[in-house]
């Protein structure tokens, strides 16, 4: 009798072993699935629907005597991509971790739709975060990594296959992430963030390791999500990328806020105005023709940089004096200039 029971137990164990990892809801993986990410076919949100606004207010974090962030206040609005900029070590990652409750701030609060992260019901359905690209157990397949998150979040397990397809990893889903390139790990992390179809996406340096095609895909994805009315908060140090992507920017340096607003308003607030760049064989005559109101400097490569007057004024003056002009253009300060001026540091 006892032996019979024992055999039954062993048999059950073997059955379970051979069927492990196949959830009740599992179905065969789609064959011949696209490597290319699935297109976004979302629709804009209905007007007036409640958004997922992120509000940081007086956020501070100290580690002993070291100040990571100090009295940081800013808002990320629904329907917009907010870029979070700062030199390395400025406190970007600490701030993002404080928003999602992984780090407890020493002062101040961060709320998502008016609630602290830990007070959200089923946060997976409201917030997705990409904080560390290589954060997956090396012995667990990518698909199982996502299925574990589905399980813990109460989301049907098939969602793991859906998000794998969304980031173009379907064919590699049964591999262990230790075989992945940095770009593939980044895609896996983004897939994990998309599991709950969240209203708010928080991404820490998501473009790291992505190739140009991947960077473009990510930009389209984030813009598309914002277009649907979601809140996107993304930290980056890739300034041209941010200029192409963001609606609003928050710039911090040494843990403190230095600028916050729309990309245009931050650029306009710069002390340095637009300048006119001219190429001419007669730079000294042009300086003379412009008179004393214009600030003229002649670069080592012969390019003349003019401030204080606009491009039309420069063109008129050259024409009046019969000066040959080979090139004339206006240069607005770039986000990189703004960044350098505001943080006083060299971006990487």
């Amino acid at each position: 009798m006892i032996i019979l029971a024992a055999l039954l137990l062993i048999g059950g164990g073997v059955y379970w072993f051979t069927h492990r990892g196949q959830g009740r809801n599992s179905r065969p993986e789609p064959r011949g699935a696209t490597v290319r990410p699935a297109p976004l076919v979302g629709t804009p949100r209905a007007e007036g629907a409640a958004g997922c606004r992120v509000v940081a207010s007086g956020l501070s974090k100290r580690y002993g005597d070291v100040v990571a962030i100090e009295d940081l206040s800013f808002v990320a609005e629904p329907g917009r991509v907010t870029a979070f900029l700062g030199p390395n070590g400025a406190g970007k990652t600490t701030t993002l971790r404080a928003i999602v409750g992984l780090t407890s701030p020493t002062a101040g609060t961060a709320t998502i739709a008016g609630l602290r992260y830990r007070d959200l019901d089923r946060p997976i359905r409201r917030v997705g975060a990409v904080l560390e690209a290589s954060a997956a157990h090396p012995g667990r397949t990518a698909r199982n990594h996502l299925r574990v998150i589905c399980r813990a979040g109460g989301v049907p397990l098939e969602r793991a296959d859906e998000v794998l397809a969304m980031v173009g990893l379907t064919a590699d889903g049964r591999q262990r992430p230790r075989a992945y390139s940095l770009g593939m790990r980044q895609r896996l992390a983004i897939a994990a963030a998309l599991i709950g179809d969240p209203e708010l996406l928080i991404l820490d340096e998501p473009a790291n390791g992505l190739d140009p095609e991947g960077t473009r895909w990510l930009r389209d994805l984030l813009r598309g999500l914002a277009h649907q009315g979601r809140t996107v908060l993304v930290s980056s140090h890739l300034l041209p990328e941010v200029q192409a992507l963001a609606d609003d920017i928050v710039i911090i340096a040494r843990g403190r806020l230095v600028a916050h607003g729309t990309v245009d308003s931050v650029l306009d607030s710069l002390a340095r105005p637009a300048r006119t760049l001219v190429r001419t064989p007669e730079p000294e005559r042009l300086r003379h023709a412009l008179g004393e109101t214009a600030g003229v400097t002649i670069g080592v490569d012969g390019e003349v940089c003019i401030t204080g007057v606009d491009a039309a004024h420069v063109g008129d003056a050259a024409q009046r004096s019969g000066i040959v002009v080979h090139q004339l253009r206006t240069e607005r300060p770039s986000l990189e200039d703004a960044f350098l001026e505001l943080t006083g540091e060299v971006p990487r």
Partner: peptide, 13 residues
């Protein structure tokens, strides 16, 4: 509000 058609999330109520 979904990014793509999601039969899985449609069942999650």
């Amino acid at each position: 509000m979904t990014t793509v058609e999601s039969p899985a999330l449609a069942r999650d109520r």
